[in-house]
Simulated scan of single mutants.
Amino acid sequence: MTPHLDSVTVGASDFAASAEFYEAALGALGFVRTHELVDEEEDDAAVEALGWGPAGAPAQVWLVTSGVPTRDVHVRLRVASRLDVEEFHSAALAAGGREHAAPRRWTPYRRGEFNAIVRDPDGNLVEAVAPE
């Protein structure tokens, strides 16, 4: 079997703000929330982990509460079109993301690709990339 990445987990300092960001950014790419986990030993426990993935597939991106948030991770997601990249970028910024690289061609580094990169509330990079 060829190794492949199963999922990535990001720890958040402000779970609610990060959840809003990832819901919007990943939702713009067609990801759906696949998991919502709480501590089953507590009554009225708050959600501590969320997972998103393509409809009908396991979660590929996880967000968890964390005393020490994840920093400087770069999550790169392949999408079908330039429109997907642009919609991701707009949705991510509207949901509290910060600009890192606006939608554009990256000819010196990645020929044949159209990308946008946004920082999540803790500064991690989330990128959408489409073939040109």
Rank of each mutant, 00 (worst) to 15 (best):
Ala45His: 05
Gly27Asn: 02
Ala16Thr: 11
Glu87Tyr: 03
Phe88Gln: 00
Leu93Lys: 03
Asp72Thr: 13
Gly123Pro: 03
Ala80Asp: 10
Leu77Arg: 02
Asp43Pro: 15
Ala57Pro: 01
Leu50Ile: 09
Phe21Arg: 06
Ala92Asp: 00
Ser13Glu: 08
Thr107Trp: 06
Val75Ile: 15
His100Cys: 10
Ala128Lys: 05
Arg119Lys: 15
Leu37Tyr: 09
Leu29Ala: 05
Ala19Asn: 04
Glu36Asn: 09
Glu41Asn: 14
Phe114Val: 07
Arg98Phe: 06
Phe31Gln: 03
Trp106Arg: 14
Val64Gly: 07
Gly97Cys: 07
Phe15Leu: 09
Thr70Ala: 13
Thr9Ile: 13
Gly56Asn: 02
Val73Ile: 14
His35Phe: 10
Arg78Trp: 11
Val118Arg: 02
Ala24Pro: 00
Val47Tyr: 01
His74Ala: 11
Leu26His: 00
Val61Trp: 04
Leu50Val: 09
Gly112Ile: 11
Pro121Thr: 04
Phe88Tyr: 00
Glu99Leu: 15
Thr65Trp: 00
Arg119Phe: 14
Trp52Gly: 04
Glu132Ile: 10
Gly97Ser: 06
Leu77Ile: 15
Ala101Tyr: 05
Phe21Trp: 07
Glu86Gln: 12
Glu36Ile: 10
Pro103Asp: 02
Glu23Phe: 03
Asp122Leu: 11
His74Leu: 14
Glu87Ile: 06
Pro58Ile: 12
Val68Gln: 10
Val79Ile: 06
Val38Leu: 08
Phe114Asp: 01
His89Ile: 07
Val85Ser: 01
His100Ile: 14
His100Gln: 13
Glu40Leu: 15
Val10Asp: 00
Ser81Leu: 10
Ser18Leu: 11
Val8Phe: 02
